[in-house]
Write a protein that binds this DNA or RNA. Sequence first.
RNA 1: GCCUGGGUGGCGGAAUUGGUAGACGCAAGGGACUUAAAAUCCCUCGGUCCUUGAGGCUGUGCGGGUUCAAUUCCCGCCCCAGGCACCA
Length: 858
Amino acid sequence: MKYEPQKIEEKWQHKWEKERTFKVSEDKSKPKYYLLEMFPYPSGKIHIGHVRNYTIGDVVARYKRMRGFNVLHPMGWDAFGLPAENAAIEHKIHPLKWTNENIAHMKKQLKRMGFSYDWDREVSTCEPKYYRWEQLFFIWMYEKGLAYKKRSSVNYCGKCETVLANEQVEAGLCWRCSTEVTEKTLDQWFFKITAYVEELLEYCDKLPGWPEKVLTMQKNWIGKSYGCEVDFPLVDKPGAIKVFTTRQDTLFGATFMLIAAEHPLVMELAKGKSCEKDVAGFVEKVKKQDKLMRTSEYYEKEGMFLETYCENPLTGKQMPIYAANFVLADYGTGCVMAVPTHDQRDFEFAKKFNLPLIVVIQPKDKILDAATMTEAYVDEGILVNSGQFNGMENTKVLDAIADFLEAQGKGKRTIQYRLRDWGISRQRYWGAPIPMINCDKCGIVPVPESDLPVILPENVKLSSEGGSPLAALSEFVETKCPQCGGKAKRETDTMDTFVESSWYFDRFCCPDFDVKPGLDRKKLDYWMPVDQYIGGVEHAILHLLYARFYTKMLRDFGVIGVDEPFTNLLTQGMVCKETMKCPEHGYLFPDQAAEGKCHLCQKEVIIGKTEKMSKSLKNVIDPDYLINTYGADTARIFCLFAAPPEKDLEWSDQGVEGSFRFLNRLWRIFIEYLGDIKKVSLPETGIDLEGEWKNLRRKTHQTIRKVTVDIEDRFHFNTAISAVMELVNAVYLVTRPAKSDTKALSIIREALEAAVVLLAPIVPHIAEELWQMIGHKDAVADAPWPKYNEAIASEDEITVVIQINGKLRSRITVPIGEDPEKIKADALADEKIKAMLKDAAVKKVIYVPNKLVNIVAQ
RNA sequence: GCCUGGGUGGCGGAAUUGGUAGACGCAAGGGACUUAAAAUCCCUCGGUCCUUGAGGCUGUGCGGGUUCAAUUCCCGCCCCAGGCACCA
């Protein structure tokens, strides 16, 4: 009987679907476990990254189920987004149609992978029954001041008359028409995530189930810094420039002032000066520079003197004021005091414009001279040229200077965050409409709750040119003001798709709940928070921070009762593969480069470096091909075996072959013994065993222990699978017992059943099939997770390594629990050790229990 | 540039708390089975040196350090990847 994965996989998938095996509801008698994988954008086909992510999740879901948990394992679609609009433009297909067709196809693919989802909870975010609640929350946020409008800049292509995403800007040019991209200022909607900044930061230390690196990234993103706001009085008119600095210790060395070029103050100061025209030109030029690149090395540090001065509040010296391209308008006050001696950017700027340098921090080991410095000194030291603060260590003087500034009324202590409010306006069609109305008389008025949802109209024209398609649709735009009844216009911006993904995990708890507020508090109280969240590490900051913010906000609205949405987080690495290139035809898909030759010209294929799988590099593997050739179980076990989840996974065709071989090997040994072991029962705990049977039974129990620990404690499925492989190898090596030797056969049955049960979460189809074959009536998915017996699993003897000065020299075998002194004596008495030591003096003997003896000798 | 990770045989990886480096798999080589091939089963497999041994030396990106002992801890450097607010 051959292993035919396609046949058995279809059979079990059909059964799961028919019997609704994975449907769940609230059950107070069992502990709940909410397992969630990041839902996909329906791009068309699932890719290996999805297969990996969802396989990891499915193993945990099935494992927890076997451990007796009531497991919620839902799946849905992050259905709004830019690719649907691009497809609409390129292939003249409506985004809704395109999206729904993609969903239908991907759903089929996911089902073929055998994932244990409760499909009755499927959610698609582009449906009004989903986004209507998001619109309700928007209105509540608006009422609380958590959603507000402000002017903000976007990337804009003048030729296409379209706002561009960062992704659509290639080296400063529009991706469609290669026109230079400019910045355009628009009134846009923002969510006040900064209202929760302290709580978001504080809880970074209350999430022990999150990877340290993600929390560190989030903390750095929030970027809390303690410093001072210092006033620098203007020289030729009243008022002062406010500056935020964390380095008030260098204040005496501040010799000039920098203002972000787009800061309104720039034109204000230049007004009426001879430089006004030049400054205006400079500001325009900077606005055209790409935001990302501006602060990097890509552009030269540029600036323009505004022909005016301010005064250093501590030295009283005049400081020239410059507009600069590398100062950020959004951070701090948009103005920076420049200390060229102790900041490299300021140093370069000072050299370029021949500005004065004053050393204020002297290192301990050398003397700095402003006249001969070739770079800024950025390390610690002792203050000089700093009035009464001279002689103090710069790191310890921060408080003293802050106190002094406050006492003099020249500044005050402040806390600054790097985190900015979340801009959610998109000038696009395929997103959730923002439920707001603009009335000439009443201003901004929310759509009344009773009028929700504001449905995204379907009859729009999409093209690569022109602004938002919604704005062009008068039947959508023209409306009545809910307040005065007069003519008014709807908001035509749609929401960032990160909004939908900030609460979908709540909706999964009650996907059909259709009364306000769209979330059933009782069900949420049962299921939330998510016990384990799994997804790509690329979401470590934005999505996860937004979801945390949204959760806290919904909590404050009384909709939900948790402070944090995800108790445990697993960030998985990416799937990579080598690229293949034909010298003539460029990148090739794997099947276009069979046997190392280009399918078009038969030229030798060049193997490029290994990179993240992507369509543009064509280094992709089609999951359908894998399922058709090897079956879903092979695809699943390979994804898990090739690397631990948090690491990047390098694709290998041969590795897949090996995983398939292992499943066949398991199948064969099982069939081989099936007739003999079907009738024997499992061995009793206390039976006497000798030799290889004792060893095999020990191996079985050790394997159960190892697999349990690997899955439960650290999600290291690769080592769990190796352990089962070792067990299967051990069964192959054992002497075939006679049909009458029921004792030996029972040990074999125990080993093989253990292998099947332990693999059940990983390769569920083959496991169910073998489980049924050996005579079980109930599904292995419902079987209890196996227990191991510590006494059976423990070794009687251990190998102790003997080292001399840390180098391995010999080894001895000792019974378990042997006296340490006896082991040390045995080590010194060992033939090889005696020969090597000769007459060297033994200074110390270290014994590490059950591991090694290290002899320190001269 | 900034923030965060990572670097171990020909390859993917293992070594869980500072304690036997290379589990398991792939590739490669050898053997068994077969008329033959495939498949299967068994064995070998970091490098190097010689006196071929239950051998010596060496080896976890590079250079230092701490320690009886370092893939693991500390300092400096090189390289690779992810994120950087409108891809999701």
